[in-house]
């Protein structure tokens, strides 16, 4: 479903109903929306603007939202599209490796599988503090960061993620797999730089 479909009206709410649906169905997700926006943009002001744009868009096209359906996924989808269309170019996020470059690096499932990180220990992960976790996540290209946030932080199912991201479920699975391998590499680097013995008791291969 692209943005055109997103804004296709499916019913007509009265003004009163619009505000009621907005307050009851959309506003409860504002914390998650702001945190998602912040993780995408890495900037509080941009996150603020992105959330405002998303909510205004959601209100403008509220007739395309059916009550009782998944409001959070609907809002996340609008936010993600707004980010791609309006914010990605002007984002203050430092230049990162393009998704295609990373796809090339992990060119096939086979390559990805052979590159799996095997020597990161549970104990090393448990010793990392929130900032180190955030830095490792932020170091990932935005498309990989996005699937980890949607799945691990927000708890969306693969099916919901497929709808939010406009990609097939199989792509959700493989992108998540690759994202986690990259994340483990970053976490391992942090653990190593902090002096943790990441290789001790390594997973036998």
């Amino acid at each position: 479903m692209d943005e055109q479909e997103e804004i296709k009206p499916t019913q007509t709410y009265s003004d009163l109903e619009k505000h009621r649906v907005f307050d009851k169905e959309f506003m409860p997700h504002i914390d998650s929306m702001y945190n998602f926006a912040f993780r995408l943009t890495n900037d509080e002001d941009d996150a603020n603007d992105l959330v405002q744009d998303t909510y205004l868009k959601a209100f403008r096209f509220i007739n395309s939202f059916s009550q009782g359906t998944n409001a959070k996924a609907w809002l996340f989808r609008i936010l993600k599209n707004s980010f791609i269309n309006d914010f990605r170019k002007k984002s203050k996020e430092p230049a990162k490796v393009d998704y295609q470059d990373v796809e090339t690096t992990y060119n096939s499932e086979e390559d990805a599988e052979t590159n799996q990180t095997v020597d990161l220990r549970v104990e090393s992960v448990q010793d990392l503090i929130g900032d180190e976790i955030a830095n490792a996540l932020n170091a990932l290209p935005v498309d990989f960061r996005t699937v980890i946030i949607l799945c691990d932080v927000e708890g969306f199912t693969y099916e919901e993620m497929a709808k939010i991201l406009d990609i097939p479920i199989g792509t959700v699975r493989s992108r998540l797999h690759r994202a986690r391998m990259l994340l483990k590499d970053k976490l391992k680097s942090y653990a190593k730089s902090l002096g943790y013995d990441v290789n001790a008791d390594s997973m036998a291969d």
């Binding site: 959330v51 900032d131 976790i133 955030a134 996540l137």
Partner: peptide
């Protein structure tokens, strides 16, 4: 164990930013 630990870590230890006061 490692995958489970990383997933729980992302969920529980990633800082939750408070929304700006005037956003709503």
């Amino acid at each position: 164990e490692l995958e489970k630990c990383i997933k729980e870590t992302m969920k529980l230890r990633l800082e939750k930013k408070a929304i700006p006061l005037n956003l709503i």
